[in-house]
């Protein structure tokens, strides 16, 4: 369910690090809790975000949920496809439903995040 090569936050975001780039999304658990996602608000390319800073928000019909960045850096790409197909966040949250890519400014921040095993336990405990 939760890819081993991702790292996870308590706010239910994931990050996949490849070189100095981090790809960020929300977890399957998060999309499950939100229900049908209808809109995604993403930052502009070039925006600088701190760890824990706001990356935008995702909306269901009756809720808005902020997305917090798992790590600091500069936004290098956003998933434009979500504008027309926000449902990808529901159907493939760990793949096609990725949100943004950032150039990590402090890669050491990643080490603070949860592993897949930790996150599974965390989600279990939250239930």
């Amino acid at each position: 369910m939760y890819p081993e090569n991702f790292r996870y936050t308590k706010e239910h975001e994931w990050v996949l690090v490849e070189g100095d780039t981090g790809t960020i999304g929300i977890t399957d658990h998060a999309q499950e809790e939100l229900g049908d996602i209808v809109y995604v608000d993403l930052p502009k390319i070039g925006a600088r975000i701190e760890q824990g800073g706001s990356l935008g928000s995702v909306e269901s019909v009756k809720a808005v949920s902020d997305i917090y960045s798992p790590a600091g850096g500069e936004v290098t790409d956003v998933n434009q496809a979500l504008a027309d197909a926000p449902e990808k966040l529901n159907t493939d949250p760990h793949g096609d439903g990725w949100l943004v890519k950032i150039r990590l400014s402090a890669p050491e921040e990643i080490a603070e995040l949860m592993t897949a095993a930790d996150y599974r336990k965390y989600v279990e405990a939250e239930k």
């Binding site: 269901s60 019909v61 009756k62």
Partner: peptide, 9 residues
Amino acid sequence: LSTREQHIR
């Protein structure tokens, strides 16, 4: 588009 509104946001 109710997420713009006060009862949610």
